[in-house]
Design a protein around this nucleic acid. Structure first.
Length: 497
RNA sequence: GUCCCCUUCGUCUAGAGGCCUAGGACACCUGGUUUUCAUCCAGGCAACAGGGGUUCGACUCCCCUAGGGGACGCCA
């Protein structure tokens, strides 16, 4: 049997380091066993999936040097590798479950479901679908379907008994069936949910080992049940520990830069980032901390994975990157890499139109363009003192802008400009008041080349990171503040719409 | 609230019953090299969550408690 692993990201945002983490371990596992590693795009959520996000996931994984054997851009015998391109196959699978009596139509409204959950929580019960629609007669169901009533298809789950989940790292994890929800398999828009899609396609793609985050362990019984209903062999499961923020919560962009592109933009070497991810939860048998991907593949051993969820420590990543830089790049290599990174002709050509008219002699250039390539500017609270603006107001502007910018998919001058004009209007401010703190957090100075053009060149990840940094310099946003700001932000958005 | 997982220096980790007076690395501190800084080198600080078992012997096995995390969506 050929070992086949996969990584299955959903293209709903920035390429996450967690995705790279799972991809790295999946790849090592497969490559060591001379098997295959597959990249599959899990875009069953039509509303949130974007082609831009998919592209940047592909780009980021490729940048890291994580090459897949089959994927959306690399056709293979098990394609297509994008869930949205195989939506038609799920209907028949759902019908099969329906026929066998393993699934049922559910006509419950969202309101009823959320009320049900609230009551269950109040009664100290497990929140779980109560099975109301199972008892519907065949005639009643047909009638409702004929009338075109909105519905979903849910899987049936035994009422009692225990599901023993076999995990490659933890051994047997018992989960009572009474704790397992009757998962929706087919949404009312006719699309499959992740749970259905992932089971069907992992089977069709002959995936033998599923390496995924620990967050999935509780839904393993659903997946096992589905394999069982279909009469398929269950792949082996390996649940990796979750990467964490310094405060120990699950790694999230609110608290930590989580986009791979941020680390790329910051000037980390892909070898170092990969190496660092490899030493989170795993170690070389000889204890060496610096190792390459081929070395990791050669030495890889699942039993060396430690289960405690590691904190992502940027300081250590920096140290490791320094070692790679010093030990593996000669002067030529250094020159190649740094120009490939930012000081290439193409990049300079984008910058020059912005600075040309502001420059008389070349020696003025480097100061002016430094912030394009820089990381986070060295600014203090004093730098962020804006005329006629309290620190709290400044913080609010930055936070609102950040939230707005997180939603931007088309990172170009015009939409960015429109965004800030709208923000100023909503806040009842002049645009220059909104932009004043932006200049500081982005360039470190109250003046800079044109802001929106600069933002385009700096890129979305670094732009957001610098704004976030500005907010942090102002003391950050407390949980309480955040709640208040969020409320105000939502109100503004609503009135805008 | 219900369920699941986890628990060695602040952080990443080594440790598969005696090799542990618990090792390495980051960070931090001290000193040396360097005209400075960085690098590099030397040294220092610092941990087995707590309580019960099992055993001649427990960081390692079992149980309980505590702490942390995660999952409870027509998101993935």
């Amino acid at each position: 049997m050929t070992i086949r692993t996969r990584v299955a990201p959903s293209p709903t945002g920035d390429p996450h380091v967690g995705t790279a983490y799972m991809a790295l371990f999946s790849l090592c596992f497969a490559r060591q066993a001379k098997g295959q590693f597959v990249l599959r795009i899990e875009d069953t959520d039509a509303a949130r999936s974007t082609p831009e996000s998919e592209q940047s996931i592909l780009d980021s994984l490729r940048w890291l040097g994580l090459d897949w054997d089959e994927g959306p851009d690399k056709p293979g015998p098990y394609g297509p590798y994008r869930q949205s391109e195989r939506l038609n196959i799920y209907k028949s699978h759902v019908d099969e479950l329906l026929d066998k009596g393993h699934a049922f139509h559910c006509f419950c409204t969202q309101e009823r479901l959320s009320e049900m959950r609230a009551t269950q929580m109040q009664n100290k019960e497990t929140t779980r679908y109560d099975g109301l629609c199972i008892s519907l007669s065949k005639e009643a169901v047909d009638e409702k379907l004929a009338a075109g009533e909105e519905h979903v298809v849910r899987m049936k789950v035994p009422n009692d008994g225990t599901c023993v989940v076999k995990d490659g790292l933890r051994g047997e994890v018992p989960i009572e069936f009474s704790q397992v929800d009757m998962q929706v398999l087919l949404k009312s828009d006719g699309n499959p949910t992740y749970h259905l899609a992932v089971v069907v396609v992992d089977h069709l793609m002959e995936i033998t080992h599923i390496i995924r985050g620990e967050e999935w362990i509780n839904s393993a019984p659903k997946h096992m049940l589905l394999y069982d209903y279909f009469g398929w062999d269950m792949p082996e499961l390996i649940h990796m520990p979750l990467l964490r923020n310094p405060d120990k919560s699950k790694l999230s962009k609110r608290k930590n830069p989580t986009s791979i592109r941020f680390y790329q933009r910051m000037g980390f070497l892909p070898e170092a980032v990969l190496n660092y991810l490899g030493m989170l939860g795993w170690s070389m048998p000889d204890g060496e901390e610096k190792f390459s991907l081929p070395a990791m593949i050669e030495q890889f051993d699942v039993s060396r994975i430690s289960l405690g969820a590691p904190v992502f420590d940027v300081d250590k990543l920096k140290w490791l990157n320094g070692r790679w830089l010093r030990e593996d790049l000669d002067d030529d290599g250094f020159a190649d890499r740094i120009s490939e990174w930012a000081y290439n002709r193409e990049n300079l050509k984008k910058i020059i139109p912005l600075i040309k008219e502001r420059v008389d002699i070349f020696s003025e250039v480097s100061d002016m363009i430094a912030f394009f390539a820089a990381g986070l500017p060295d600014i203090t609270e004093t730098d962020l003192e804006i005329k006629n603006q309290s620190a709290d107001e400044t913080k609010k502007i930055l936070q609102f802008a950040l939230w707005d910018l997180e939603a931007v998919t088309l990172w170009q001058k015009e939409p960015l400009q429109a965004l800030f004009e709208q923000l100023a209007e909503n806040l009842d401010l002049k645009i220059r008041d909104v932009l004043a703190p932006m200049f500081i957090v982005l360039s470190g100075k109250p003046v800079s080349p044109p802001l929106f053009d600069s933002m385009v060149i700096i890129g979305p990840d670094m732009t957001r990171a610098r704004i976030k940094h500005g907010i942090d310099v102002l003391g950050g946003v407390s949980k309480k503040q955040n709640k208040k700001l969020e409320k105000e932000y939502q109100t503004l958005r609503r009135s805008r719409a």
